[in-house]
């Protein structure tokens, strides 16, 4: 009765190499090694070549950097949402905290970017985690609402108290010594984080994270303090965001209120939806599509948001699994018609 003709159905079969196990592969030939490495290599080489290919267009080179910043945020969002079960709309807060931390360390203490970026990442993540601690027992939409409030709150506090340069922001932050360093540092960060997190969620600790998401009561009953793990999850996600924020500050040589903007909360979510939640690579892919599209759409003026929204809605309605989930399935399985 479904779309197919006659009494046949489409069968999905794992390709030989996948059948042996989901994560441990028994590799016996160069062909199989290539099969496994090819998709990873495409990502790595693709990202590594992007700045070179775009070296003629500095504007688009800058877009690559922005893609990386959004990717870091999106990976964090995907990790937190699909592995820890916390839907965080606080992306803007992570970026803002990281940006201000880096800018303050740079302008007040005169530290160079090579020190401010790691320090801002760590410090920012600690600040974010501590501030989010009271909200960790919240779940679902409640956590989302509270985390959405944080960036708004932070921006208004800075504005009202006129601290950290108030509405002007912090000017005179050192830039990266050259554009190649900026690009490749960010690309390296994204690649390391993607593969590290993909490994992490397969480890024991990843199992606990997923347990917290699936059934937190059962995890509690196993004698595990779920708030510790949620805090760790927030720490990882906010570290990614702060890293992005710190890089952003040094890229623009400026930290300001716009780094608490809602864009940093919303675009990572959109990228995760488009790319495929739970894959961790998907969000990077999503950013690679959405950020350039949103740049291209600048010509449309205010219609930009409309076009953007339509694309997103279409994606959610027609392909809510996301590009990466779809592609992985096509790559790892083949289909054939069989008689019933």
């Amino acid at each position: 009765m479904s779309g197919s003709k006659g009494d046949r159905r489409k069968e999905r079969i794992d390709r030989g190499i996948k059948v042996r196990s989901d994560s441990v592969y028994a590799i016996s030939s160069w062909k199989e090694i290539t099969y496994l490495i090819a998709p990873r290599l495409v990502l790595i080489l693709g990202l590594a070549l992007a700045p070179l290919l775009l070296s003629a267009a500095p504007y688009w080179q800058r877009v690559v950097s922005i893609i990386c910043v959004y990717s870091l945020l999106a990976i964090g969002f995907d990790f937190l949402a699909n592995y820890v079960g916390l839907v965080s709309l606080g992306g803007g807060f992570y970026v803002g905290v990281g940006a201000y931390a880096a800018a303050l360390l740079n302008t007040y203490f005169g530290l160079p970017p090579i020190i401010t970026i790691p320090m801002a990442t760590l410090l920012g993540a600690i600040i974010c985690t501590v501030l989010f601690l009271p909200c960790l027992p919240l779940r679902g939409v409640y956590f989302a609402i509270v985390s959405l409030m944080y960036p708004l709150l932070a921006a208004r506090i800075i504005e009202a108290l006129d601290i950290f340069g108030g509405t002007d922001g912090i000017l005179g932050v050192d830039g990266f010594s050259n554009v190649w360093l900026e690009q490749y540092f960010l690309i390296l960060c994204v690649l390391v984080m993607v593969f590290a997190l993909r490994r992490l969620v397969e480890e024991d600790i990843g199992l606990v994270f997923r347990g917290v998401k699936d059934n937190d009561q059962a995890v509690k009953a196993s004698g595990i303090n779920i708030n510790e793990f949620k805090a760790l999850g927030v720490f990882i996600a906010s570290a990614l965001g702060c890293l992005g924020g710190a890089c952003l500050t040094h890229m623009y040589m400026w930290a300001g209120l716009s780094q608490f903007a809602l864009d940093f909360s919303i675009i990572p979510i959109a990228a995760t939806v488009v790319g495929g939640g739970g894959t961790l690579v998907g969000p990077v892919l999503g950013c690679m599509i959405l950020v350039p599209v949103s740049e291209l759409l600048r010509d449309f003026g205010s219609l930009r948001i409309a076009v953007y929204s339509i694309v997103l809605t279409a994606f959610i309605v027609f392909k809510s699994e996301g590009i990466m989930t779809y592609a992985a399935r096509k790559y790892e399985q083949f289909e054939r018609w069989v008689e019933i």
């Binding site: 009765m1 479904s2 009494d7 159905r9 489409k10 809510s320 699994e321 996301g322 399935r329 019933i340």
Partner: peptide, 26 residues
């Protein structure tokens, strides 16, 4: 089946006939 299809999960195939009060309602 629809939900699985949307989420990219398992493909569910259904065959057969259900007749209720003389009408095929499959």
């Amino acid at each position: 089946r629809k939900k699985e299809e949307m989420a990219g999960g398992e493909r569910i195939t259904i065959r057969g006939r259900i007749v209720f009060e003389g009408k095929d309602i499959m």
